[in-house]
Simulated scan of single mutants.
Amino acid sequence: MEPNAVVELRNVSIYHTRDSFKEASFRKKRDNCDLVLSDVNLTVRPGELVYLIGRVGSGKSSLMKTLYAELPLVEGEGWVAGFDLTKIRRKDIPYLRRRMGIVFQDYQLLTDRNVFQNLQFVLKATGWKNDMEIKNKIAEVLNEVGLVNKEYKMPFQLSGGEQQRLSIARALLNNPQVILADEPTGNLDPAASDGIMQLFRAIAGNGCAVIMATHNIGNIQQYPSRTIRFNQGQIEEIDIVSILGY
């Protein structure tokens, strides 16, 4: 693995399996699998913001699922946050995911718990025990995402942009090395979308890599950065500035 790389994939083929995660025996065969992407080579370093673009079904989500080990890596070499994806065991997957944050389009919040309790649940589930440390960490991430004084609001009392900020706060709780964001602005109006993009830029500026799948070309235009295009089972890095003509 390249020194300091957060994500590195070498000559990877990504398969979508119709089964759940399996152990090494699965890696020796291709039964019940569909090839989604081939010849994938990708390196992401700390502090980079990387966009993934392409049509629906082009493999963006499958790549992300491979990075957080929902889909097994069956061909090629891959490392994420120090974990070898070709050797990772089921019991190690939670430890991999503690080193990354995952942000979804639909927020996936606990609707029966307030802001504080949503974050408290994650910290306790990942081994935090000291109540004061938990309280301080929650205050820290809420300040980082601009949700100060929202601790006791229920999710339904928050705007869409605020709910997504809460999901980003949740992703930041364990000081991740990389955040994977799958269409994080897809359900937001332009003003809220812009706020989320500024937040992701700030997070990358603090040294955490951000990999974002998006269809929002306007966001890329306003906040240009490394861009990977998915097309016909392949990926390629493109010069988005030249393509968009500015």
Results as ranks from 00 to 15, higher is better:
2 E>N: 14
4 N>T: 15
6 V>Q: 02
8 E>S: 09
9 L>H: 04
16 H>A: 14
20 S>I: 08
20 S>C: 02
23 E>G: 13
24 A>H: 07
26 F>P: 05
26 F>Y: 04
28 K>T: 08
31 D>M: 09
31 D>A: 14
39 D>Q: 11
40 V>D: 13
41 N>Y: 10
45 R>Y: 15
52 L>T: 05
54 G>R: 09
54 G>M: 10
56 V>I: 10
57 G>H: 15
63 L>F: 08
69 A>N: 04
72 P>I: 00
73 L>Y: 00
74 V>Y: 01
78 G>W: 00
79 W>A: 00
90 R>C: 04
97 R>D: 08
106 D>F: 10
110 L>W: 13
111 T>I: 05
116 F>W: 02
117 Q>V: 05
120 Q>E: 06
127 G>M: 03
130 N>K: 08
130 N>W: 04
137 K>D: 04
137 K>T: 13
138 I>S: 06
140 E>D: 15
142 L>E: 10
143 N>Q: 14
145 V>G: 01
145 V>C: 01
154 M>V: 06
157 Q>C: 09
159 S>I: 12
162 E>G: 10
165 R>Y: 07
169 A>P: 03
177 Q>H: 11
177 Q>L: 05
177 Q>V: 03
185 T>W: 06
186 G>I: 15
188 L>I: 07
189 D>H: 01
189 D>S: 00
190 P>Q: 13
194 D>S: 11
195 G>Y: 02
197 M>T: 08
198 Q>K: 13
198 Q>E: 13
203 I>D: 01
204 A>V: 07
208 C>G: 01
212 M>F: 06
215 H>D: 11
216 N>D: 15
221 Q>W: 06
228 I>K: 11
228 I>A: 11
228 I>W: 12
233 G>T: 13
236 E>K: 11
243 I>T: 02
